[in-house]
Each structure stands twice: as C-alpha cells, then as structure tokens.
Design a protein around this nucleic acid. Structure first.
Length: 266
DNA sequence: GCTGCATGATGAA
DNA sequence: TCATCCTGCAGCA
C-alpha cells in the first residue's frame, strides 16, 4: 500500500481526524511503550509528510516519526474500535476516533537534528511542490539503471515499485537504461507524470495509471489491480498499447515489469 | 495450520 | 548481493 501518495493521504486524513485533539496514546504491543506514555494526554497539533515519511507534531515539541515500510498499515475506527491485534504498535484515541498502527519499519520520537538528517537524505517529492531540478541533477550523476535509480529515495522521494514500473512505461523507457543517459526532456516528463498521477492517487487512495479512455465504461472502483495498471504485476499479459507480452525481471531484489516493445532495451 | 508473498529500507560482506 | 527487520492475509492442506 504505502507509496508516497498513500503517505500524504494519511497525513491529510489523520490531520483532519485527530489534529487539535488531546489524545490517549498507547502501545498495545508494547514495543513503543515509552514513546506512547510520553505522548499520552498531549495535543496532536499537526501531521505532515515528506516522501514516505510521516511526522506527527505534538504539544511539548514532540515529533513522532513513522515510516510504514513494506508491511506497515493504519486502520481507523469511528467508534467502538475492535481489540487491537497482537501487532498493534501504536494506538491513538480521541473522543470520536481511534487509529491503530501495525507493522511499521519506524515508529519513534525524534528531535530536530534527527528530522533534519532524515530530510537531508530525501530527494524532491512530487507531492511537496518541489522542483524537478534536483531530480535532473541526481540522474545525471548515476550510471545505474533508471529503474534502480527511481527506487532510491535520494533521487526522488515517494516513488515505490508500482509507480516506478508505471512511469517508466508511460515515458517509454526501459528500466535498464542508464540513469544519466535519460534525456532531460524525458526526465521532465517523468516528473510531470509523477506530480499528476501521485496527486490523483493522494485524492483517490489508489493507483490508477491507465488512461480513462482505455478503461471503458467500468467504474474505477470496480477495477482489480491488474486492470488499473499498464505493466505492474502483468507479466505474460498483452501490453495495452501494442499487444506484446509484458516482461518481469528481478532488479536489486525487487521485481520490475515492462513492455519490451514500448520500452526497448538499451 | 502452514507457506509465500507484498506498493520498503538498511547494514554487512 | 545477501540477510534482516517489520505484519497480515490469501491460498492452500
């Protein structure tokens, strides 16, 4: 679930639901007990996101840093929440809503220096109104494939495995093309696609890259994952544009998909 | 009940 | 490149 669009969406939803409220905070699982007791009874002032990182800002100058990693998930309940699962690291509760967090890679209180260090490691975020200049510069410096470069959060913050595959298809670039050989115009196009698609993903909560004209009359919400995307998880299926079989390959431990005809090998 | 898999990232080798 | 950490759930028996 969690690519940058989901993270920014969580920031917005959690801000709307919990900001301005004095919260009861606990760690049912026990692995965030100290932090939870520090936060318990404080007011959550605001929530913001950069790339895939969430920052919850509390009265008393506390900042909670959350990174969902691959498995992390939030669940929210209006009232009468069920018992938390054994893996529930963090629970917030206002008088009207409850939030559970399970499986995050990171859930820690941090100080301003630690936050600065996190931000220093992040490239431009398409959802933060950043300029693509740093993306252009970062790609120009790398000999690794563009596919590998796009998952590096120092290159571009917030892209994950789904968007990587889809954006490369939309730009028509093979993942193995060396990053520094990608024409600047294509890099700009990649950025513009990222801004447009991730904004849409932030609003809808799902990734739909297929052009509406190609979706037919079916409602987006009815579509299965492989119907909303051009290449991700579609190995062996025909390319929507040219009919060629989509290919899958392992790249630095993560799978990547592409159309061999629309995205010719370097 | 067990296995495998997932939209992530790090540190060691 | 590999091992490791973080959970839940679908697909099996």
């Amino acid at each position: 679930m969690p690519e940058g669009h989901s993270i920014h969406r969580y920031a917005r939803l959690h801000r709307r639901t919990f900001a301005g409220h004095r919260l009861r905070v606990s760690s049912p699982q026990g692995r965030f007990s100290e932090g939870a007791s520090d936060l318990d009874g404080r007011v959550l002032e605001t929530v913001d996101a950069t790339g895939k990182h969430l920052f919850y800002r509390w009265g008393g100058g506390r900042t909670l840093h959350v990174h969902l990693g691959l498995f992390g998930r939030f669940t929210t309940f209006d009232a009468n929440p069920p018992e938390p699962t054994a893996g529930t690291r963090l629970a917030f509760r206002s008088s009207e809503a409850t939030l559970y967090l399970a499986g995050p890679t990171i859930c820690d209180l941090i100080d301003p220096a630690e936050e600065a260090a996190i931000r220093d490691r992040l490239g431009p975020d398409p959802l933060a109104g950043d300029s693509p200049d740093r993306l252009v510069q970062a790609l120009a410096r790398r000999r690794i494939g563009i596919g590998a470069a796009l998952l590096d959060q120092r290159v571009m913050a917030g892209i994950g495995n789904v968007y990587r595959a889809e954006f490369l298809f939309l730009v028509g670039i093979h993942p193995d093309v060396p990053a520094r050989e990608v024409p600047h115009d294509d890099t700009r196009l990649l950025w513009d696609l990222a801004v447009a698609h991730m904004r849409r993903g932030e609003r809808s909560g799902r990734i739909v890259t297929v052009d509406p004209g190609e979706l037919g009359a079916r409602r987006r919400s009815d579509l299965a994952a492989h119907e909303r995307l051009y290449v991700y998880h579609r190995e062996g299926e025909p390319c929507r544009r040219c009919g060629t079989e989509i290919t899958r390959h392992e790249l630095a431990g993560r799978a990547v998909w592409w159309c061999p005809r629309c995205q010719p090998a370097p």
